[in-house]
Simulated scan of single mutants.
Amino acid sequence: MTEFQIRTAAAADAENVLAFWKEAAEGTSITDDVDGVTRLIARDPQALILAESDGVLVGSVIAGWDGWRASLYRLAVLPARRRQGIASALLEAAELRFVAAGGRRGDAMVLEANERAHRMWAAAGYAREDRWRRWVKPFAQA
């Protein structure tokens, strides 16, 4: 197994991150473009956490902290690198960030149909909360 390093993303990583998500993540978002990723990094430079191995992106998680909620998005690992501790290391980095900032609970966005992700999140100590549903409204772009 090749070692990996955990680091925060820089604006220059945006295109590479988007290509990585196409290969490793399930689902898409209206913010999946260079502008969306670079805006995230500019707004919160610690939010996008990456795992790299020999210069290759092998994992990611968005650890969004708004002072109230600790939100987790886009936890993804390259299929060939799964079950090697990468997701656990990314979650640990995100959770340490949240705790240092005063976060009390992590909320993860997980696709309903992604059973493999459900097992991973449960193994990491997260539990599904059935009493809430996500409501969304895309905003018109100017």
Score class of each variant (00 low, 15 high):
3 E>D: 15
4 F>I: 03
5 Q>A: 14
8 T>A: 12
9 A>G: 12
10 A>M: 13
11 A>V: 12
12 A>N: 11
14 A>L: 11
14 A>E: 09
14 A>M: 09
15 E>P: 07
16 N>C: 06
18 L>V: 11
18 L>K: 06
18 L>P: 03
21 W>M: 11
22 K>P: 04
22 K>L: 12
27 G>Q: 02
27 G>F: 04
27 G>A: 05
28 T>N: 07
28 T>V: 09
29 S>H: 09
30 I>F: 12
31 T>V: 00
35 D>W: 03
37 V>P: 01
43 R>Y: 14
43 R>M: 13
45 P>D: 14
45 P>V: 10
47 A>M: 00
48 L>R: 00
49 I>E: 05
50 L>R: 02
51 A>G: 05
56 V>T: 11
57 L>F: 06
61 V>L: 01
62 I>W: 01
64 G>W: 10
65 W>R: 06
68 W>E: 13
69 R>N: 12
69 R>C: 08
70 A>N: 07
70 A>I: 02
73 Y>F: 15
73 Y>H: 14
74 R>S: 08
74 R>N: 11
75 L>R: 03
76 A>W: 03
78 L>T: 10
80 A>E: 15
81 R>P: 07
81 R>I: 08
85 G>E: 08
87 A>Y: 10
87 A>W: 07
92 E>Y: 08
93 A>F: 08
96 L>H: 14
96 L>Q: 15
97 R>L: 14
99 V>E: 14
101 A>S: 13
103 G>C: 10
104 R>W: 07
105 R>T: 07
107 D>P: 00
107 D>K: 08
108 A>H: 05
110 V>N: 07
110 V>W: 05
115 E>T: 11
116 R>N: 08
117 A>Y: 06
118 H>G: 02
119 R>S: 13
119 R>G: 11
121 W>C: 03
125 G>I: 11
128 R>D: 04
131 R>W: 07
131 R>Q: 13
132 W>E: 05
134 R>Y: 08
135 W>M: 14
136 V>F: 01
136 V>K: 06
137 K>D: 02
140 A>Y: 01
142 A>S: 04
142 A>P: 13
142 A>C: 01
